[in-house]
Write a protein that binds this DNA or RNA. Structure first.
Length: 572
RNA sequence: GGGCGCGUCGCAUAGCUGGAUAUUGCACCGGCCUCCUAAGCCGGGUUUCGUGGGUUCGAAUCCUGCCGCGCCCGCCA
């Protein structure tokens, strides 16, 4: 819509002057129309009534009459001036691919490698990967980054458990703690296998102080960059991480780079930063020698406004390493975006302030609200989770039931492929289409919904377009699109497609992937209506104009799907 | 106690730099396959936009009081 606004503004300015409106306060009153039938842009004329000494409706009429547009028309409807772009202008925006926009590093997921991926963590991954895809679709050079927490307490517990507990002990502890060990097709995956040790150690920790002591010793050594401990940690978590990445890969989520937290201890950068922070105006030292920044003057409120970055024993904290991590990330890209759960808001703010104290620019951050189960928050430690592997299985098998019914003609291999694509896409879309700050309560029925306004609906439209393309065969499209013939649902479809780049960019700029998801759904609706009204393959042969439009829609649907992580299969 | 976020039809959800009848889906009712995929299309809604005030020509949108829910306020990660 931004492109249209810019195209229209000059004529509007002239018109306003002609009519006698002073100033340019009206510029940001120019908004997008609520309904397609009202055109593309609308200008409410209430405020002009006083200046022109007439009714708002008359003002609208005067202004509309004074507008001369060669890229569309302006019509007064009641107290509004509705501006509609011409088909020519819209069609001109169809072929335009995204321009190159520079680099951005998007860090997302970064889950502790202590157990299988669960649906609580999935929101971060889906949201993050959707951003990665949307930024790529918009022309950015994106690095998808995973921060591996390879030295904290979580990994410490995992490592200790694997080195000190045997299988019988683990089973015994879990039985006592009433954490069920479910037999699933994924039991042999290392993330599923090893999480039992993690859970068992957590149970044991509460009654056996030796566990805590053992773990603490390991963690301390890791914080001192002890090479032996770090490699034992890696041996413990890497298979878990690999298992998690398999799950993510199944969802179409992959990463370009992995950075280990311990790196910043090993290379000494954390130490350097801690020294630098001492010269901050905000710097303070606690009784036991711990260092902090006093953030009250920076607008941080609450019980404690002190941000500790160095313990009394001189060691660093997670947040301190995060500072070094951000310093490092700036060497990799010109823009940084983090996807974080809302529980990290304060922490993120503190880190941001500390970074500014170090003259390092803070990253951009998108926060999302948690996914809860009906009976509370998910926790790997307590074992009340829905694993992503199981959710995806369930989604696939539900999709399979539907495909089997509809497409009895397909081979079982094909059915498997389609249902897997549908299951994964539906699962992702059900998360991506909700605005990030809205809390989600996990319900199987919602998570697996295959209804309209979901991924399968969009995939279906795309598959339709593919089917038409196959039926049409080789078509000579050199005549190009004749915009003068466009009316009705065909015109609406072209209009929708013309705004793809605008929608993508504005969705990115407002940190709301759900907006682009909604556009994509609307595109599918428009294509279905076009399909109803305009036949491509007819008894008389292929209608070339309709074929051209159908092919453009196929392309837009495919690109749109890829931008939100829906798999654009060609048949379903 | 304080900070941040959320509260929109039975359920879910959009809109929230103030503007035209509050979007969409589910569920519910009815219609459409001798024609390119009916996972589709068409029609059917009396919604206190949590609630009380305020600002405005105009408030779901801005300000403010209150209520409910979530997250956070560790020398944890």
């Amino acid at each position: 819509m931004q492109a249209l606004v810019e195209a229209v503004l000059p004529s509007l300015e002239v018109a306003m002057k002609t009519v006698g409106i002073k100033g340019d306060f009206w510029r940001n009153m120019l908004g997008r129309s609520k309904e397609a039938s009202q055109g593309d842009l609308a200008l409410p004329c209430f405020p002009f009534a006083k200046q022109l000494d007439c009714s708002p409706a008359d003002a609208a009429k005067k202004i509309a009459d004074a507008i001369e547009l060669d890229i569309g028309d302006a019509i007064a409807v009641g107290p509004y001036v509705n501006i509609r772009a011409s088909m020519d202008w819209l069609a001109g925006h169809l072929s335009k691919g995204p321009s190159s926009k520079g680099t951005i590093l998007i860090e997302h997921t970064s889950a502790n490698p202590n157990g299988p991926f669960h649906v609580g963590r999935a929101r971060n991954a889906v949201l993050g990967d959707t951003f990665v895809r949307m930024y790529r679709a918009a022309g950015y050079d994106v690095t998808a980054e995973y921060y591996v927490d390879d030295m904290g307490k979580q990994v410490g517990i995992l490592c200790w458990a694997l080195e000190n507990l045997d299988e019988n002990k683990v089973r015994e502890l879990l039985a006592e703690g009433e954490i069920p060990i479910e037999d699933s097709p994924h039991s042999s995956k290392e993330d599923h296998a090893r999480v039992l040790w993690y859970q068992a150690a957590n149970l044991l920790k509460s009654k056996d102080p030796a566990v805590d002591a053992g773990v603490t010793e390991l963690v301390q050594l890791s914080e001192e960059a002890d090479a032996d401990v770090l490699s034992r940690f890696e041996a413990a978590y890497q298979p878990v991480l690999d298992g998690m990445l398999v799950t993510l890969g199944r969802m179409g989520i992959s990463f370009d780079s992995f950075t280990k937290e311990s790196r910043f201890i090993v290379d000494g950068s954390v130490e350097v930063l801690m020294d630098q922070l001492q010269s901050s105006q905000l710097h303070g030292v606690a009784e036991n020698g711990a260092h902090f920044l006093e953030l009250e003057s920076k607008g941080v409120k609450g019980k404690s406004t002190q941000f500790f970055y160095r313990r009394g024993d001189g060691s660093s904290l997670y947040a301190t390493r995060d500072l070094a991590y951000h310093q490092y990330k700036w060497t990799q890209s010109t823009r940084l975006l983090n996807i974080l759960g809302e529980d990290h808001k304060l922490q993120s703010k503190q880190v941001g302030i500390a970074l500014e104290e170090l003259s390092i620019q803070p990253p951009e951050v998108v926060f999302y609200a948690f996914t809860k189960l009906d009976d509370g928050k998910m926790s790997t430690r307590r074992g009340n989770v829905v694993f992503m592997d199981d959710l995806l299985d369930e989604a696939q098998s539900r999709a399979l039931e539907t495909v089997k019914e509809i497409r009895a003609d397909l081979s079982s291999e094909k059915l498997q492929q389609i249902s897997e694509a549908v299951g994964v896409s539906a699962t992702r879309f059900n998360i991506a289409r909700i605005s990030p700050e809205k809390g989600i309560t996990f319900r199987w029925a919602d998570a697996l919904s295959l209804e309209a306004d979901s991924a399968p609906f969009i995939m279906y439209s795309h598959a339709r377009a593919c089917s038409i393309q196959r039926k049409a065969g080789d078509v000579d499209t050199s005549v190009g699109l004749d915009t003068s013939l466009l009316t009705g649902s065909a015109a609406e479809l072209v209009r929708r497609m013309a705004y793809m780049n605008d929608e993508l960019q504005s969705s990115i700029d407002s940190n709301g992937p759900h907006q682009f998801c909604a556009w994509l759904s609307a595109l599918a609706v428009d294509y279905n209506r076009f399909y109803r009204d305009n036949h491509v393959v007819t008894d008389e042969g292929v209608n070339v104009q309709n074929f051209i439009i159908s092919e453009m829609a196929r392309d837009h649907l495919r690109r749109g799907c890829e931008a939100v992580g829906i798999i654009p299969i060609e048949e379903m």
